[in-house]
Amino acid sequence: MDQVVITVSNYPAGFIQDFVMDPASSKLSLDNHEDFVLAIMWYIEHSFVAALALINRRTTTLESRLNQATHNEELFTIMAYQKSLIRFKAALNQNAPTLDAVEASVTHFNAPNHQSLTDDIKIETQQASDMADTTNQILQQYSQLVGSVISNNLNDVMKFLTSLTMVLTIPTIIGGIYGMNVKLPGAGLVHSFTWLMLGTIILCIISIEYLRNHDYF
């Protein structure tokens, strides 16, 4: 309308809120409707670039946590990002006919500055499309690698727990043997318990060093 812009969306758009709160800094004005439309189109395409840049940063953060990943949470996160990228790509493709119609218009958007604004929109659109394709390819590689990383990390955890169980079995076996009500070597000594504990500790240390040397700890 002449003095009012009516928008309909499921979620509030950030640049619309900026325009409402501070029209001067957002460079949006209702004085010229055609300039306003082109500016809005640029902000829409730029919002895709900003969202994709955020996904790239979160993907980098996700990559730094992969060496400790043992759950499927990382896979679900990647799937959510890929789902967003598919929607972004579909939205960008749907915006293309609108931009083509603006460029092909004979009666509107013919001011000297409109061509430069249209070129800026095309640049933002192409950048957003390229970022969506690149990020999607990276996430596809991640989704293949994450499963292997998670499996490898779980194998390391199981290897450590197995080695720990083997070490803890030593005092269990020795305690079980010397807990029997039969005559055993050294059972009658005064400090038999001390020597028995010392021998058990030595055997455990030897076992730990052996497993560590063979990369089980």
Rank of each mutant, 00 (worst) to 15 (best):
S148Y: 13
T77E: 15
V5A: 06
Q3D: 07
Q144G: 05
T107H: 04
K89P: 15
A101Q: 13
T70M: 15
K183H: 14
G186R: 01
D22Q: 15
S47N: 03
W195T: 11
N113S: 01
M41I: 04
P97E: 10
F88K: 04
S192V: 02
T194V: 14
E73H: 05
I205R: 12
F88A: 14
L30K: 03
R58D: 05
T194H: 08
N32E: 00
S207E: 07
G186D: 06
I208N: 02
T165S: 11
R57M: 14
V167S: 11
A111C: 12
F36N: 00
Q127G: 14
S26K: 15
V106F: 09
E74K: 08
M1Q: 02
W195L: 11
M180C: 10
Y81D: 15
D22I: 12
P23Q: 00
P12N: 03
I150A: 02
D100H: 14
N136L: 04
M197C: 13
Q144E: 12
V49D: 12
E63P: 07
T125H: 08
Y81W: 10
Q3A: 05
N93Y: 12
H71I: 15
M180N: 15
L117D: 08
T200N: 01
G186Y: 04
M41A: 02
N136Y: 07
Q17H: 00
G186Q: 06
L52N: 00
A50F: 09
A80L: 05
V8M: 07
N152W: 15
G179R: 10
W195A: 11
I55E: 13
Y216M: 05
V4A: 13
L154W: 10
V146W: 09
S105W: 04
S29K: 06
M180Q: 12
Q144M: 10
S151R: 06
I55N: 08
I78E: 10
M1Y: 00
T7W: 01
I121P: 02
V102R: 01
